[in-house]
């Protein structure tokens, strides 16, 4: 096989080194991994197509591969961040990893959040639990350098079960200090260490009541949250075309070949993971 083909083979992972591991929550089943590419060429290739909202396949050599949403923004040029929950074989082993370990990465895959369409609009971001990862990527992108000017108001609603469950506490603190974003953090029920909002995400969304006018809503969270947030957005006047969701399915290849992540005729891994509510209505859904 010649050199070109080798680069083109989408099944071969690039090597990355774990630069840092950060525990994100009190229960310690959620960790953020900071990854550095071993080869500059691999990095350049990765960043060529990288948009917030995409995912990558992380390889733990000898164990397997998992699709994980990318938590860092393309504007953070030197590294990649992945926030990973301990759930299966691969993630378990990743959680046991220390700094300096070499793992593999393939990607970026998927369509990502619709940045072009969002320009000039007001942005409403609604997230729950650790599904906030690709939304963090999005927010960091929005706040980077000149990007902020291209967008209107930014309203964020982020809810977790309890204060210890929030990811990216440093980022949240920094965003909280800024006056060009409206950050609403909420927990499910009263907690002694909590002085911010209390209530489920849909309820808080209703209270914050973002205006649908010239706005786009980006939603990512557990299915139950999405289920109850969609009607709230609708009530507020958001049309299906204005609501974007990031979906999850079991994926193996990430490139639309292994055939399991389809929703109707669309593959989540290449046509998604971000779909507008309107698109989803069109699809034949299980």
């Amino acid at each position: 096989m010649n050199q070109k083909q080798e680069l083109d083979n989408p099944y071969i992972p690039s090597l990355v080194t774990i630069e840092d591991v950060n525990s994100e929550n009190e229960v310690n089943d959620l960790k953020t991994f900071k990854l550095i590419f071993n080869e500059t060429a691999d990095k350049e290739k990765f960043f060529e197509n990288f948009k917030p909202g995409q995912f990558a396949e992380i390889t733990e050599f000898g164990i397997g591969e998992s699709p994980i949403g990318i938590a860092s923004s393309p504007t953070e040029e030197d590294y990649l961040l992945f926030t990973i929950k301990k759930t299966g074989k691969v993630t378990n082993r990743l959680h046991d990893s220390k700094k300096g370990k070499i793992i593999g990465i393939r990607g970026p895959f998927g369509n990502g959040w619709p940045l072009k369409e969002a320009e000039g609009k007001n942005i409403v971001i609604i997230g729950g639990g650790f599904a906030f990862t690709t939304l963090r990527s999005f927010i960091v992108y929005l706040l980077h350098g000149n990007n902020r000017e291209k967008f209107g108001d930014i309203i964020i609603v982020y809810g977790c079960r309890n204060p210890g469950e929030f990811c990216y506490k440093d980022d949240l603190e920094e965003w909280g200090k800024r006056d060009d974003i409206n950050l609403n953090l909420t927990i499910d029920s009263e907690h002694p260490d909590w002085d911010k909002l209390v209530g489920f995400v849909p309820t808080i969304t209703k209270e914050v009541a973002p205006s649908p006018k010239n706005a786009m809503a980006f939603v990512c969270g557990p299915p139950i949250m999405i289920k109850y947030t969609s009607p709230v957005l609708k009530e507020l006047g958001f049309k299906d075309e204005q609501i974007f969701l990031s979906l999850e399915m079991r994926m193996k290849c990430g490139i639309g070949k292994c055939g399991r992540c389809n929703i109707g005729s669309k593959f989540v891994c290449i046509d998604g993971p971000v779909f507008s509510q309107a698109e989803l209505k069109e699809l034949l859904r299980d």
Partner: peptide, 9 residues
């Protein structure tokens, strides 16, 4: 499998 790593139960 490095020895330093924990192994699944």
């Amino acid at each position: 499998m490095e020895d330093t790593e924990k192994t699944e139960e």
